[in-house]
Amino acid sequence: MLKILSVTYKDSTSGGPYRVAVDHKNCLDNKEFNLKFFKYDKNLKLKFIFNSSKIKKFINKFDLIHLHNLFSIDTIIIIKIAELLSIPTVLSLHGNLNEWSMKKNNFLKMLFLLFFRKNINSISIIHFLNNVEKEEASKFIDIKKIPYTINQNCIDVSKFKITRNNDSNFNILFFGRLDKKKNFLKIPEIANFFKKNAIQNIKFLIVGPSTVENLNLLKKKISEFNVEDLIEIRSPINSINQKNSLFDEIDIFILPSEDEADSVAIKEALASGKPVVISKECKFVLDTKNQEFIKIINNKSPRSYYNELLKFYYDREKLNKLAKKIHQYSRENFSMESLVKWLPVIYKKCINHTHRNKNL
């Protein structure tokens, strides 16, 4: 049995990377693989300084290490130990190195990349979610020196139901962290167009973790546009049962994000048979199979989101007909069956040191 150490965040409040790590564990824990979580620990630096032998002994139990965060001293410590012990490492970037993310604390991040360049170059494989992420990351690290693979996030599509309780409201869901990156303050602006045009039975549900500051900003924005009757803020949810109950209430999903590497929430909405209206920064590619239920907004105008949402509002019968089609599209494009095919290949090639010959 191959033992994998998955170094990730402590819980789902950190967003997609934690959920991805959990999905990896759920689909690969079997007779061939055993994944163990190691949570990023603010005290790891001190533990390493005062008892490095204990940490080395622990890490040496594993055949491979999969890291889910780049900009952490914990990551560098583990990479360094892994290199000394000849243990291969995989790094999933989760958008950490794209242009939008690099704008935040740019100086410190550039200093981090410069100072720990040798450690980063020792990584066995970097996992990019798409070509856009790879191209943007190549501006900050030398990917000619590090093998890479390009594979999108996958979810367990089979766990998502496609029911709808068919109440009188047309419910629009924003599901994700309330932060600047997700552009959550755009929701009251979009809701205001429904109010100004006297569109009836509209409800925006906003569900996700938030800081007190961002929650207050949202409430202030809702009050500013006087759309309290159109917006309902709910507490974060985590379990699949909670998600199915939530998606059962809604007609459509919205994400006006400023940047996404590969949104898990969008895929969960699609797995639930719901159309999505999303920004071009979500990096979904339209084709003949999905353009009927994935609507991409190429500008930042609230009116553009309103116009697309309104088309579905006036054709609610179409939503019921689309549900099975959307769910089937999800199965064919980002289900766990795909993950089970490519992730073990990467792990085995790293362990067997065959990845150095070419990019996967």
Rank of each mutant, 00 (worst) to 15 (best):
K289P: 05
L255A: 06
L270A: 07
N299G: 10
I252S: 04
L255S: 09
I278T: 02
I254K: 00
G273D: 02
F312D: 04
D287F: 02
K311M: 11
V277E: 01
E258P: 07
P275S: 11
L270W: 08
K280P: 00
D287C: 11
I297M: 01
E292C: 11
S279P: 04
S245Q: 14
T288Q: 14
A261E: 13
K243H: 11
E292K: 14
N299D: 15
S263W: 09
C282P: 04
N244E: 06
F293N: 05
N307V: 10
S301E: 08
P302I: 01
D251W: 08
L309R: 04
S272R: 09
I294H: 00
I296R: 05
E249G: 12
V285I: 15
N290L: 03
E249H: 14
V276E: 01
N244Y: 09
I252F: 07
Y313D: 10
I297G: 00
E292R: 11
I297W: 00
K318Q: 13
S301Y: 04
D248V: 01
D259A: 15
K283Q: 13
D287H: 07
V264I: 15
D315N: 14
K289M: 13
I254Q: 01
D248P: 02
K295V: 02
E260P: 01
D259I: 14
L310S: 01
S272Y: 07
P275G: 07
P275I: 09
Y314F: 15
N299I: 07
E260F: 05
I296K: 05
D287S: 11
P256Y: 08
A271F: 11
L309H: 01
N298E: 13
A269K: 10
D287G: 10
K300C: 06
K289H: 13
K280Y: 12
S272T: 06
P302A: 02
E260L: 09
N290H: 09
I296W: 03
E260A: 03
I297K: 00
K280N: 07
S304G: 06
Q291W: 00
